[in-house]
Design a protein around this nucleic acid. Structure first.
Lengths: 190, 190
DNA sequence: CTTTTTTTGGAACATTCATTCTATAATTAT
DNA sequence: ATAATTATAGAATGAATGTTCCAAAAAAAG
């Protein structure tokens, strides 16, 4: 009856995501997207909606994938090791001088754009939940001190991603990032 | 011989700074600036140069003022109390849902714009220097444990500003910010 | 093969963007 | 008072913005 799309929407969405990731929302033009996604304007609008809708889908895609990655870390060894793994993994598989899309978006759009803010916030809450559950288990196992509050520690760890990304952007110094990460992690262990 | 400006360039620069601070660089248009600074386009270009040059001057203005504020904290009581004061002050005199211009700019522009990156980086290094000197004194006085590295701790504290601002933007919860600040500060004390 | 439906390419759209220009008004110094 | 100089206001500029439209090509189903 009808013709099929000549492209994989999910795959091209990732190209868009990478563009937004690199330059941010406002600095990425539709022309950049047309070029980068190797798609016609009409195809973009037809498949994803306007620029803002496209960006939201990129964010969701990113959030889902990141959360999946983090949850996979939970399987390995002890709860505290899983937490460590999550924190270290976050910064390790970064692209050159490119920070986390979520954190970047928090600062560029979240304060002015409620829809985007809700999206970022929900992903934050989910990740914090994952961390909190790990920390509660760790506490029961005596891996972290009894006086620590797993909820607060989970929020602290989430917030620390922002620290690490900012320092990575500014200084691009692996040793520095490692020192900071060591301190962050040791601060919840003792 | 010639006519004088009918406005105070420094005062109007602060109006521009507040606009950029609120919306970010890319989302702030020249029209926004004309309206917000209550100045004619020509006067803006004549006095500050183009949009990018104007933004750099806003950043410098912000950086200088922030650093002055932080240095004033050094006078009060003990070194460790000064550090505490700096960290708590940073987040306290925030405007509604509006994060730090430096941190915001780190994420919006620093990765793509070398001149801006250098500006932010230099302000960061200056503030880190202030913190490091305080922490070195604190160490000598036994206010912080001997095994802590004042350099690393200073960089950790600077990076933590980013954490606090992000969480403030996303959750706007004073209690949460206080809990995080408490943890951050206690992590360098013991 | 024909019909039907939808993608596709690219032109066209109106708007907004940063920037420059021109003419006028204002004010200082002589 | 006059001349010189510069700020000022707002129109004008051209490029870039996001979005829509239209004709043509493509491919699935009968």
């Amino acid at each position: 009856m009808a013709r099929n799309k000549a492209f994989d929407p999910e795959e091209r969405l990732e190209k868009a995501r990478d563009l937004f990731w690199q330059k941010g929302y406002n600095a990425t033009s539709m022309q950049d997207l047309v070029d980068g996604m190797q798609l016609n304007r009409a195809s973009i609008y037809d498949t994803y909606g306007d620029k803002h809708a496209l960006f939201q889908q990129c964010l969701s895609n990113y959030a889902r994938q990141a959360l999946k990655d983090y949850k996979q870390c939970c399987q390995v060894c002890s709860p505290i090791a899983a937490v460590e793994h999550i924190v270290r993994k976050a910064i390790e598989n970064r692209k050159e001088g490119q920070s986390c899309l979520m954190v970047k978006t928090s600062f560029e759009l979240a304060s002015m754009d409620q829809a985007i803010k809700d999206l970022v916030k929900n992903q934050a809450l989910e990740l914090i939940q994952v961390l909190q559950e790990l920390l509660e288990k760790a506490k029961q196992l005596g891996e972290i001190p009894a006086e620590k509050d797993p909820g607060v520690m989970a929020r602290f760890l989430y917030s620390s991603f922002s620290s690490l990304w900012m320092m990575d952007v500014l200084f691009n110094d692996k040793q520095l990032i490692d020192q900071l990460t060591d301190h962050i992690l040791s601060s919840i262990r003792k």
